[in-house]
Amino acid sequence: MAFTKTTEAASHYDHLEKMSVSELLVHINSEDKKVPKAVEKALPQITKLSEAVSEKLKNGGRLFYIGAGTSGRLGIVDASECPPTFGVPHGLVVGLMAGGDAAMRKAVEFAEDSHHQGWNDLQEHQISDKDVVIGIAASGTTPYVIGALKHCNENGIITGCITCNEGSPLATTAQLPVEVVVGPEFVTGSSRMKAGTAQKLVLNMISTAAMIQLGRVKGNKMVDMQLSNNKLLDRGTRMIMEALAVSEEKAKQLLDTHKSVRNAINAYKNA
Rank of each mutant, 00 (worst) to 15 (best):
S50V: 02
L24I: 15
T47V: 12
V35C: 10
A79R: 13
L25D: 01
Y65V: 06
G69I: 12
I66V: 15
S71R: 02
A42Q: 12
P83F: 11
V21R: 00
L63A: 08
H15R: 12
D14L: 02
G67N: 10
N59L: 08
I28R: 03
M19R: 15
R73P: 13
E31I: 01
E51V: 15
K33W: 01
N59P: 11
A42V: 09
H12R: 01
Y13R: 06
A10M: 11
S11D: 05
A79C: 07
E17Y: 05
E40P: 03
E55H: 12
A68C: 08
A52H: 00
S22H: 03
S50M: 01
E55W: 04
A9I: 05
E17P: 04
Q45H: 06
A38R: 14
D14F: 04
L24T: 15
Y65G: 04
P84T: 13
K58W: 04
G61P: 05
C82T: 13
G69D: 11
L25R: 11
S80F: 08
I66A: 09
E17M: 04
A79K: 14
F64G: 12
V53C: 12
N29C: 14
D32E: 12
D32F: 06
E55A: 13
E40K: 02
T85G: 05
E23Y: 05
D14Y: 07
S80Y: 02
S20F: 09
E51A: 14
A9S: 15
L57P: 14
A38N: 09
K56E: 10
S20Y: 08
L74C: 09
N59I: 11
F86L: 09
V21A: 13
K34F: 03
R62N: 09
E51P: 04
K48V: 14
E17F: 04
S11N: 02
V77T: 08
K48F: 04
H12Q: 03
I66P: 11
G60C: 08
K37I: 06
A9G: 09
T70Q: 03
L24E: 03
P44E: 09
